[in-house]
Simulated scan of single mutants.
Amino acid sequence: MFEAFKGVFSELKYYHHDNFLVNYLLLLVTFIIILVQTSQSMPVLFGWNVATVNFYLEVLVNLCIGYIVSTIFYVLVVYYPHRKRAKLVNIRVRIIFSRLQTRLKSFSNLIVSSVNLDIDASRGVPPSYTEALGKLDIFALLEAEEIVDPWGCSNALEHIVRDSSEIISYKLALVHYLAFMDVAELKLYADLEDIFIFENMGKLDKWPPKEYLLAQDFQYVVDAYNDCQNVLNTNKYPIVWETKEHSIE
């Protein structure tokens, strides 16, 4: 019972926030109707013609009643269906961002485990890590990293190519919901659009600039993963890797 009341109160609060001007006008016209009805028995001031005054008051009341009817029509026909659709879209957007978060995490973890360098990216990728990535043959390390999953044995590079493909598909899916996103979600989407490595992971395996692009874009991939957690307001699981074999000074 309490949860139902809380849900209704939350919806009313949201409605008022989105339609405060409509609500204030509704209160005003209601006050006008009450004022006119209570003042009918009062004498006309300043010697005005009673019939004329009553005529204009009747017109005013009819306009106020018309506004009330229009408001009810707006709530039932316009606002409520739009709100219902927006809630469904918001759920869909959160699902897509959740899947994006999973793929971004997988992409990032495969990189850090393959290159085997110390990193704590809870506050972003340190510049020294990006510099170290640029000196490594990342694709050779990814190919050498064996992955065992339910579909059999493969390597980290194959998984990253698959992750990149799915990230692209999720980005395309988000395009349909841009009008419903809040500021943080739009910023995250814009940041994802600025990461070019995903579109290039499946192209020309030995293309030299791709390694440089991967090294430079990795910091933005991690940032996008962290932002995904903020947008979804989930528990924070930073990208961390510790090893005694290699370290970054």
Rank of each mutant, 00 (worst) to 15 (best):
V61D: 02
D217N: 14
A173V: 01
V36I: 14
D18V: 04
L133F: 05
N90I: 02
D194F: 09
A190Y: 13
P209F: 09
V59F: 02
P43M: 07
D118Q: 13
Y74Q: 10
I96A: 03
V115A: 02
V161M: 01
V93L: 09
V222I: 10
S39I: 03
V75W: 10
R83T: 03
W241H: 15
A224Q: 06
K84V: 13
K210C: 03
R85F: 11
P238G: 08
E3N: 09
C228T: 11
M1R: 13
Q37R: 05
L142E: 02
E249R: 08
Y15A: 03
D118Y: 04
A190Q: 13
V221F: 03
G124N: 06
K187D: 11
V22R: 08
A173L: 07
Q216P: 05
H82Q: 12
N109L: 12
Y129L: 10
S39F: 07
Y189K: 09
G47Y: 04
E242D: 12
F55R: 04
I95D: 11
V78K: 14
L60D: 00
F97V: 08
Q101V: 00
L192G: 04
E245F: 09
V75R: 11
N49H: 04
I248Q: 10
A132E: 13
Q101N: 14
N49K: 05
A184W: 08
T102M: 07
E211I: 01
Y212K: 14
V8G: 04
T71R: 04
H16E: 08
V22A: 04
S128Q: 15
Y67V: 07
F46W: 09
A132Y: 01
K84A: 14
I33Y: 03
N226W: 01
K105R: 15
S113N: 14
H17N: 12
E143I: 07
Y24S: 11
V183W: 12
E211N: 08
L186K: 15
A51K: 10
V29Y: 02
L141Q: 15
A215T: 02
V78L: 15
Y80A: 13
L12Q: 09
G134E: 04
V53N: 01
L25E: 04
P126M: 06
A156I: 02
